[in-house]
Amino acid sequence: MTLDRWIASIFLVICLIYGYTSFFAMDASLPPFMQRNPIWPSTFPKVLAGLGIICALLVIVNAKPPPLKEDEIDYRRLGDYKIGQAAALVALMVAYAFALRPIGFVASTVLFLTVSGIVLGERKLHILIPIALVAALFIWFLVDGVLGIFLRPWPWFV
């Protein structure tokens, strides 16, 4: 099965759940005075669920493999690309999200920029780390000082 069929199938399942909720679950909690309205909170979602199911089925039935793309990224040649690097960077972004509060903005940003540089193959740490540090401090100043949004710069123990 091609990738677009997989995606359409997953979307179909989402639409079915969405449709089930809007057709059978949502109206139960509707207050009586609203039941005389011509439009309910579930009206629009019902239409959407129907449309979504039709589209997903059309894609599943009609999907044909597109011609191999030479200069664009093609998922059938995914092995040729740096998928490990991409996965590592995505993991780093998740780690950044968890680290931001406890270890503070400056430390987590410097770590993020440095480690992702290393992942991409940068070895000149004597350049990378100072750049990351200056950038982190500068952005912190910009966000906290100029834009006025609070960002905790230091770890929890400071």
Binding site: L92, M93, A97, F112, L113, G117, L120, E122, L147
Partner: peptide, 21 residues
């Protein structure tokens, strides 16, 4: 690109964070 890509990723993260804190 070793410098460029980390910064692009960082700016997207920052953008989402500033918007919602």
């Amino acid at each position: 690109r070793n410098y460029l890509i980390p910064f692009i990723l960082f700016f997207t993260l920052m953008g989402a964070y500033i918007g919602q804190n």
